[in-house]
Every structure is written in C-alpha cells, then in structure tokens.
Design a protein around this nucleic acid. Structure first.
Lengths: 314, 314
DNA sequence: ACGAGCGGTTATCACGTGTCAACTAGCGAT
DNA sequence: ATCGCTAGTTGACACGTGATAACCGCTCGT
C-alpha cells in the first residue's frame, strides 16, 4: 500500500499536521530543519497524497478534463493532447480525456465525480456545457479567443488563393452529423479578404465526405474558382470530384485544405494546405488554463507558425 | 452543493446507515416500505454518492480508464469509445480516456490517483503496462483475444483478392514512428490463405503515408499483384503511387484497405475495403470487462459483421 | 412467563486529508 | 518573579462513505 501522510510523520518524528502544512506551501511557518526533515521523509517513502482524501477535504482534485472534439480524431489532435499531458504533469496536474459528444448531463456526471480543477476544450463550449461549468463553479477554457486563430486560418487560405490569381473565391464547410465549430469564423475571414481585395463575396458551399455531395457543391461553382476548405478531407473530396468532372486542378479550380494531414501529401496533384505547430497550440491552451489557475509562471507564449504548405492544387 | 447520504436519511426520516445499505444492494435486510422510502428520497434529492467519499472508503472508484492507441486511427476509434461510454454509464461506471503513449510511470500515476475499477485498451498491453496493473491489482482488458479478429481481417482481405483472380498477394504494413500492433496477425492470416489456395507466400512490404515510401514498396512488386493493406490510408497512398507509375487499378494491381474510412469512399477509383460494426467491437470489449467485474448480466455477444465493402480497386 | 431467536434499524468506526485554534517553550520586558 | 509575546508545533475536527457490531422490540417455543 502507498504511504500516507501519517507514515511520513512517524518516519520524520513529527506530527501529521506538520507534514501536511509543510507539503502544502506553508513551510515558512516551521523551522528550516523541520521542513527539511519532512521533505526527506516524504521523498524516502515516495509519499503521494491520496487524491481521494484530498478531494474529500478540499472539494477539488488535481485532474484536468479535456474535451475531445468529435471531429475526426486524427494524429494531429492526438499530438496536441500528448503535449498538454506532459505540460500539466509538470505542474502536478493530471490530464484525462473525454469525448465531447455526450449530453451535458454526462459532462455533469464527470464534474460531480472527479471534481476537476479545470476543463479544457479545443472547441467553443456549448451554452449547455458552459451552464454546467458555472453551476459547478469549475473554470473552463475553450478556444474562444482562438477565434483569432480561426480568423488567421481563413485569412491565410484566402490570401494564398488571391495571390495565385483566383478572382472568385468559395468557402467549403463540413456538413456532417457532427458539428462544424470553426467554420463560421474562417468563412468570415475569407469574406473579409475578398472585400479587401475588391473581389465579390465568397460563395459558400457545404458537403460531407461524399462524392455526390461534392458534385452538388461543384454545381454551384464554375471553372476559375479558388476554394478554401474547412479541412484536408473536404479538400480531398473536392479534388476527386473535380477530377471526375474533368476539371483540371489547379487550372480550372484551386483547392487549399487545412491541417496538413498525412494524406494531403499523397494525393495527385499534391494538396496545397495550411499547417501549424501543434505543440504550440497545446502550449497556448494549457498556458491559459495554468495562468488562470494561479500558477504564476506561465510558460512563454509559443509561435503557432501558421503557414501555407505548398502543393499543386492551388 | 450536492445532496449527501445524510440529507437523504433526514429527508426519509431514517438513519444514514439505512440509506447506505439500501442503496448498496442490501435492500433485502429492510422492510419493503423502508427501502421504498429511501429510494424515493434519493430520487427526489437527486442523490449522487460522492466519489471522493466512496473512493476513500472502498479504495476504488467507479471510473474505467481506456487507453487510446497512438496509431493513426480514423474517426472510427471515436465511435467505439462513444459506444463504450454509453454502455458503461448504464452500469454506473464512467469512462475516461487516456493516451497510451506516455511512459508506464505516467500510467502508474493515473492508477494511483483515480483508482479505476478497470483499464481497457484496444491494443495489447506492453509488458511494462501489464506490470503496473498487477502491481496495483487493477484488472486490465486488452484485445489479446482480438487476435482472432485480426486473423479474420487478414483472412477476409486475402480471400477477396484470391476470389478476384489475383495469383500473387502482398501485405502492406504501416511503417511509422508509431507502433503497428495488429499487422503481424493479419500478415500471418494472409499467408495462411495463400498457402491454402496453393499460391506462393505473400510478399511483405512496409511504408509510411508517403509517396516515396510507396514507390519503393511498389518496386518490390510487379503488375498482377493483389495487396492487402493495413488500413485505408496505406491503401490510398499505394493507390496514388500506382497511378503515378502508370499502373492501372484494379487491372495491374489490386488494393484492398481496412476500416471503411470516409475518405475511402471518395478516391478514384473507389477503394475496396473492409468494414465492421464498430459498436459491436465496443460491446465486446466492454462486455469482457463487465463480465470479469462481477456484473452478472453480460450483454449478449454482438456480431462484428466483418465484411468486404465493394469498391473498384480490387 | 421467560429466555431464545430474529427481523429491522442504528451508532460507531475507519479511510486520508487540510485547516485552525490551541498549546508549549523560550525569552525579553516590567 | 511574573507577565506577555512570539515562533514552532500539535490535537482535534470535518469532509462523505461502507461495513460491522450492537441494539431494540416483537414473537414463538417450552
């Protein structure tokens, strides 16, 4: 069995109260020698405070829940959470994942159960989720301010298309049973770029990962369009649909994706897409959480390094 | 604040001990009327036992940890965990996810912290993971017996290729920095089918999601081969590489994928692949866990419904 | 009629923690 | 010598739960 704080106290020849206080940042109340003895005993016994006891007493745990968006759980997202786990662990916090699809009542159960210190989400909280969070008084961090990020993504896509000479732009949403949380921000950014460049407002299309959908979407366009796609999967779908229709890419239609997925490297022609530094994104979200959690030394802001990955599709 | 068992007791005009026993399956020790009163009061107050208190007392929680494989999985994985979450919730258990990449010490921290009732994994546990689990005396369920499943997958791929007239087979592994836990089982199954059909042993190739890799892999083959691929991503990569080389699919080379990912529906030609019922897989894994957890009424074994999804690539 | 037995209910304990009031000893000031 | 003060340390409590032994009142057998 794991060592308890009572074991540490006995081993150090002090009281349990002393141990608890020293280990909880009140070492200054004690003689330097005493604090030292406690620390040594704790290390020697490999003391790890019981989350159960701590949770019962303080009403909160050292867990941080991350809501996994229900978009395709590709390698990218995985890398993000991988990095976040590492970052939080360094602060003594433990990250656990949770699918964000479940009804808010399910989220509520988890909050009541684990009393997490905070909840992260890479997509904006729904109103229901937000309500549950304030109800339980648990801080939530989503990528709301990441609206900037999505704005930048739409902008960089549109600007690339414009610079490649496309005079008519479109934005391709993901239409699916899942949600499309980022699309609207990006669409707006594309519209802004069009307006600034003196081009007509972008045509908005929507499709699932489906050739019939893609065909119907292409019916709304005509040769000469440049299309900013919600993600690489959408772009690949349109790529194939355009080929079947006899439209040459990038001459008859330009396509730029988003995410720089592995598959975007193996299409013919290679997909032009947008990449960014995943670990930096994780860094930012986690940093926001840690900062608000009172952890003073927020890690330095990292650069997302958002950039166009050149290909042959736009 | 949430209602405690003491609140329920007061509300029902009984003692806390009575409430606890009734709610923990010992209702038979009490008068039917009493049990009824407890249940009503509990429901009325929306009583939810504190995980912290319960964990402290019993030494275990109602959490089940699922290790998310770090392979490049498609959205499929998400559906699996989605279904598993629902199934476990029905039994009062709460599923949380965890990336399986982290070092075993990280797993150990999670086990010590949340005292999960069980740990699930869709890929075989490493020796280190297994050691940590037995150390903490926490039951672990992986897809070890799922070797059958992978055997069936390789078999169905190979048999389809043979039935389409390919006389020379190959198996394409995923070569990546990540692991490839299922590949070997499937490769063996393909070899068995070849042997049974009187064909030469399959050629084994490996590649990442990369056209150069794919080109090098194709160098090992020649027109007329039928290739069973580790997953759809691999198949799509080979599909593009074959096209660039001027090999016609399915005439010069046959390709069959695995997973029935959305993108497999939008290639040209459409990918022939293997699909299965995801919820059934979740059902099986969770059923194994629940069964061993003493929950008597194991859900009925569901049919995976493993089948070839016809396409135009083999 | 009286103790044994029993169904129904409860008081009490332990789990491990963080906090705070209270206690001790030492020491300078009156 | 006594008092007050401070730095250093501890005892006691509460958090919410599950289990166990004890308690109570009633019936039944002898």
């Amino acid at each position: 069995m794991a060592a308890t704080s009572a074991d540490v106290a006995r081993h150090a020849g002090l009281s349990r109260a002393t141990v608890s206080q020293v280990l909880n940042g009140h070492a200054d109340r004690f003689a330097a020698d005493t604090a030292q003895r406690v620390l040594e005993a704790a290390k020697e016994l490999g003391y790890q405070p019981s989350t159960a006891g701590r949770m019962l007493r303080t009403g909160t745990s050292d867990f941080v829940v991350a809501l996994v968006p229900n978009t395709t759980f590709g390698g990218n997202l995985q890398d993000i959470f991988d990095a976040a786990t590492e970052l939080l662990a360094r602060k003594g916090l433990t990250l656990v994942l949770r699918l964000s699809t479940q009804s808010p009542s399910s989220l509520d159960r988890i909050l009541a159960g684990m009393k997490p210190r905070a909840v992260l989400s890479l997509q904006p909280f729904t109103d229901a989720e937000r309500a549950v969070l304030v109800e339980r008084d648990i801080p939530g961090f989503d990528t709301a301010e990441g609206g900037d990020l999505n704005d930048a993504i739409g902008r960089i896509q549109a600007e690339h298309l414009v610079s490649r000479g496309y005079r008519r732009l479109a934005f391709a949403h993901l239409r699916d049973n899942r949600e499309d949380p980022y699309g609207t921000d990006r669409e707006v950014a594309v519209a802004e770029v069009c307006s600034a460049a003196g081009l007509p407002a972008p045509t908005v299309i929507g499709l699932g990962i489906d050739l019939d959908d893609a065909g119907a979407a292409l019916d709304l366009l005509e040769p000469g369009y440049g299309v900013a796609c919600y993600n690489d999967d959408i772009a690949i779908t349109l790529l194939t649909a355009a080929g079947l229709r006899g439209w040459r890419v990038p001459d008859d239609i330009g396509l730029i994706g988003m995410d720089h997925t592995p598959l975007s490297r193996v299409t013919n022609p290679r997909l032009t897409t947008v990449g960014y530094d995943l670990t930096a994104v994780a860094h930012m979200t986690v940093a926001a959480a840690l900062g608000a959690l009172g952890q003073s030394d927020v890690p330095p802001m990292a650069d997302i390094n958002l950039r166009v990955i050149p290909g042959d599709s736009a």
